[in-house]
Design a protein around this nucleic acid. Structure first.
Lengths: 223, 223
DNA sequence: GTCATCATGTAAGCCGTTACATGATTGC
DNA sequence: GCAATCATGTAACGGCTTACATGATGAC
């Protein structure tokens, strides 16, 4: 899950851990804020497996994230800032390992990302995240992702009325269906219905416009 | 979480682990099926802490769970079935230790359940489960639960547009908002909006009908 | 008499958290 | 100079899963 998020974000541009964490948190946005205690070990794991590699901040086309109000500095200015921060211009930090570690995705990592996005086993847990990065999937795989999820939701709805049959027997005290529980069930079914409708719209649109967006990422390594 | 589900279900009637697991699974219904590997240790933990205790199946008002289509038998009939299945009528099982362990909730357990339902710290994770059992909360605490959740969701929506502001600086390649990501965000906001509306309806109804349903299970302090 | 289901458990491990510890940079 | 934030890590622990192991019961 964390691998998926990290690789998905790194696919767009190089980032260091701290910034990565902020972006992951704002991605899953609302639900939970990923903690550093899991991110940094995960990055080390990904580096060991060759999916990401540490890049020199000065060489990356990475947009300075720290500076709040400057907007995005382009080209030379950005590179200059990066160089200065990395100590190549003024003074050597003498502890290069103790500075930010900027990571970039490798080709191995890109393949890993595609595998993660395409793995049906993790659909349930990671669906939102997969949609967030599904632009990196081949159109046909993307369509399959949407349809798998829709089928799964339909199954849930189909399996549900079974539970509703429970209290048709009129005993004396048997109408303990509980108002709140019923309301909850209704709301959940409603929510699922909405998600199905959303998926249907996505699927239809996907079929209508066969070749939507081609994966970008020409981004950094040009020189 | 598992404690909340187990105590909530046991509050209604005694159950053994296997059956408990099925009911928990059908409660959270769709999302995930709780595994035995966590349920049984949890029950032992609860027993140690005095929240539940093993009861003699014959003495419990436990509704026979195994038989599928009988619905809920009331009072005497239920007790009869329980006795028969436990071997008091026809043949003795001869191995009482290696049979089902039927658990019942204690008074300590009932207080624990109320504490769990009332704990704001677990709202995020367990909200659905809390609603499923909120009938066991005092009306005012129940209302507080709903309102906390609604306020929290409103915060999420309020914090969101901030993220949308990101790409108004029109560079050349800044158009990368990604259709899928935008669709996902919209759908999530929509879903949150629906949940807020649902909660508002619950809250209004709660306020309109001050004393709705009094907790069952040994109803004592009711005029 | 065998198979499916019911029923209870243990062991290992995954994936994440909180809490702790450290140091570098920037703003005032 | 001092605090706030940026930045990276480690240690301990928590909750739940999978896989494994065992045995009883009921149906055919």
């Amino acid at each position: 899950m964390i691998d998926l998020a990290a690789l998905g974000l790194l696919r767009e541009h190089d980032l260091h851990g701290y910034e990565l964490r902020k972006r992951i948190t704002e991605l899953a946005g609302l639900r939970h804020a990923l903690s550093f205690g899991s991110l940094y070990p995960a990055l080390n794991r990904l580096e060991t497996s060759g999916a990401v590699k540490a890049v020199d901040a000065a060489e990356s086309s990475w947009v300075a994230p720290t500076i709040p109000m400057t907007g995005s500095l382009a080209g030379e200015a950005s590179a200059f800032v990066a160089r200065r921060r990395a100590g190549h211009n003024r003074l050597a930090p003498a502890k290069p390992g103790r500075n930010r570690r900027v990571y970039g995705i490798t080709e191995v990592g890109e393949r890993t990302l595609e595998d993660l996005l395409d793995d049906p086993a993790t659909d349930e847990r990671d669906f939102s995240l997969k949609v967030a990065f599904c632009r990196y999937l081949a159109p046909e795989r993307r369509l399959a992702l949407f349809e798998r999820r829709r089928a799964q939701l339909k199954n849930q709805v189909a399996a549900e009325p079974h539970a509703r049959r429970r209290n048709l027997r009129g005993g004396e005290h048997t109408e303990r269906i509980d108002r709140y529980l019923r309301s909850l069930r209704d709301h959940e079914l409603d929510t699922i219905g909405h998600e199905i409708a959303w998926l249907t719209a996505l699927i239809d649109l996907e079929r209508a416009i066969p070749e939507s967006v081609v994966p970008p990422h020409q981004g950094d390594h040009h020189s």
